[in-house]
């Protein structure tokens, strides 16, 4: 019994916004199953009292002063940025119709 089914891959693809083909779904299901079985080995070590590490260096409280664009900050040229957009209109990024809400 594989730990990752084709249906699960389809769900992951949806969450990841990937419009996978049927062939890809089959292909990835097999591969992801093999990978997940391999990486599941992380569960072998006893870690009951081990805290997780999210950051490799123990830094804290790295804050920036509340100053608008101090020297050394990249300042963008709007025209340059919008020229790189797939579509722009009226000084804004033009995007296809948005479903849903907010």
């Amino acid at each position: 019994m594989p730990s990752i089914t084709r249906e699960e891959v389809a769900h992951l693809a949806k969450l990841s916004r990937l419009e996978l083909s049927d062939a890809e779904l089959d292909h990835f299901a097999g591969q992801l199953d093999a990978i997940v079985s391999a990486v599941a080995r992380v569960g072998e070590l006893p870690t009951e009292h081990v805290p997780p590490t999210s950051h490799p260096q123990p830094l804290t409280n790295v804050f920036r002063a509340d100053i608008v664009r101090p020297a050394g900050t990249p300042v963008l040229d709007r025209a340059e940025v919008l020229a790189q957009a797939p579509a722009a209109e009226d000084e804004r990024f033009r995007v296809p119709r948005i479903l849903g809400e907010d």
Binding site: A13, I35, V39
Partner: peptide
């Protein structure tokens, strides 16, 4: 829709290893 365009673009724009890792 924007949602569909995103999914179609990512499907076309990413290779298999990137897709594998994103899903993993």
């Amino acid at each position: 829709s924007a949602e569909e365009v995103t999914a179609l673009t990512r499907e076309a724009g990413f290779g298999p290893e990137v897709k594998r890792r994103i899903m993993l």
